[in-house]
Design a protein around this nucleic acid. Sequence first.
DNA 1: AGTTAAAATGACAACGCTGTCAATGCTCTA
DNA 2: TAGAGCATTGACAGCGTTGTCATTTTAACT
Lengths: 346, 346
Amino acid sequence: MKVTINDVAKLAGVSMKTVSRVINKEPSVRKKTYDIVMNAVKELNYQPNIAARNLAGTSSFAVGLVYDNPNAYYVIDMQNGVLSRCKDEGYELVIHPCSYSDDNMEADFITMIKRSRLAGLVLTPPLSEQQKIIDMLDEIGIQYVRLLSGRATETENSSNCIFVDDFAAAHEITEHLISLGHKRIGFVLGDKEHKSTSERLAGYRQALQDHNINYCEEHIFEGSYSFESGVLGAQHLLKDSNKNNISAILGGNDEVAAGALFAARLMNIDIPAQLSITGFEDSPFSRQTWPKLTTAHQANNVISEHAARLLFSKTRGSRKQDKEIISTFTPSLVIRQSTGVAADKT
Amino acid sequence: MKVTINDVAKLAGVSMKTVSRVINKEPSVRKKTYDIVMNAVKELNYQPNIAARNLAGTSSFAVGLVYDNPNAYYVIDMQNGVLSRCKDEGYELVIHPCSYSDDNMEADFITMIKRSRLAGLVLTPPLSEQQKIIDMLDEIGIQYVRLLSGRATETENSSNCIFVDDFAAAHEITEHLISLGHKRIGFVLGDKEHKSTSERLAGYRQALQDHNINYCEEHIFEGSYSFESGVLGAQHLLKDSNKNNISAILGGNDEVAAGALFAARLMNIDIPAQLSITGFEDSPFSRQTWPKLTTAHQANNVISEHAARLLFSKTRGSRKQDKEIISTFTPSLVIRQSTGVAADKT
DNA sequence: AGTTAAAATGACAACGCTGTCAATGCTCTA
DNA sequence: TAGAGCATTGACAGCGTTGTCATTTTAACT
């Protein structure tokens, strides 16, 4: 039942160490030896014991995924992306949900890292944006990859970052609305602690400017990445006392947009005839609203897979540098039924 | 930086083994010794190395969570519930998403178990219902806990099962609709491979029978647990050519119900004035539809925490039997705005 | 063929903990 | 107070791998 490296070595007629070399794809193994060992591995269906490898080796065979994100779809995509890479590389994934606001967070963090002797970490926003955390990790000396909102060129040291260009996405969405004739466009922002919020706002402003539309502070609602915030934000932007005459609303993400949709329904506003609404991320429920949301598609599972890829390229010293790692992802516009030609409100 | 059990032993002036006893909460340690050791542990901020524990010990310090479920909210809740228990017990969680239809599934499964030397497994539906998988696990001899739809009394050996009483939930929901005057109630079922589907259907039938309403096959749509299925199912049940005169629809779960809501909107049917719709599970997006869904609340994170609790009680030989483990959970009705008094259709 | 360097392989000691079993300390009884 | 018997502690091997370094084999030259 329990096959060890010794069994394989015996069957292959080589030493333990040579088997170790083969399964770790180390150089300096003759092709012939390699084949013999691999055959033995297959014949016995040998699975190296992770615990032993972790204990004996310098770096472990486990990576951590750290997130503080209430969005289930986002988290699942992130997990699956990283996990698929882990499986290929024979690593384990240790998931670590945590709360940024939690006082114990740092201690928790360190406990996790120490206990599992992690080879590296994938950090998702907003934790990936916290300098305090980055400093802590640098001090510990652990490898990590950060998922960030922005573009690679901006930051000086971005060798361990994967970027999502929210600026470009917001720019594209806003231009889409402008092309439909919208001039008074509201924006229900996400949490201001998230960099994606300021990036998206900046993209929106740039698009307005490109088309000579004045930026108007009254069109901005500072909210958070939640359905409820979308409801509140839309209600605020649309209420009669605010003579905004808004004809379109950007939701900070799909959830916010769904909330805005909900609010519009409460106010008997027809979508998209009277009001256009857009989201961000193209999460599953942007297809589960009525009408379906125009949004910016963001392949989180692919993004996180690249994050894992980048992490492995650092930890395992480029054992195999098969595919190129994409370091900046730009979401692409997906037009659905929640946006339409602007109603004339002049 | 790296504190080992030896450092603690030296500081405490005891042997390695005694420290081991303390951190494992083994009996036969004098209170005084225990305190001395614990102080040393705290002073050095000692974290036992999981890899070493796994390697040296008979059972490992990792449990697996296996799921084949497309519902992100469900999966996240399950993870968080199990994880919270793991944290308390110093265990790691290895997540294992898999596809029931995948041919490699079994091999994958075994690879995972072998590689990580898991102490136990938590299985969620529909995998937990597969006899083939159960047999496989029994053969391997690994501990596991199954999450099942049903009630504890039904099955002969249910000592390693946690039940969710979908029958009762469906009964309650159906009675709610009946009490509102509904007599012709449609049901868009989930995947027929899931036991929850037959349980919910049975609960629905029982409620009809209890109130002397005839069960009518035309009111049933065999679908799957997805938004799209909800759309299709509702469209089918509501189309004019089917002279069903349905005044209410049970969605197989919240996602299905959201789909049904979507379909109703397409057909310009007013909810709940013309049609009542209900879901199951009370997942977040039952609160993100318009109108919000009447559903059956099911605390998946609590349920999965109890599953983990049950698993630990088996593996660690009841080291501390603090809280009682609930083995059957009954979802409770949550009335929101998607259900209302039946329109008179006679 | 003889020499030398490089490539391939192997022997063996860690890694940090737990299981086993022996040794010691303590309590209680006669 | 001695001895039995249990509670508590410790010494040491071993879990299955990798790192180090020594050894053997191969290739590449005179």
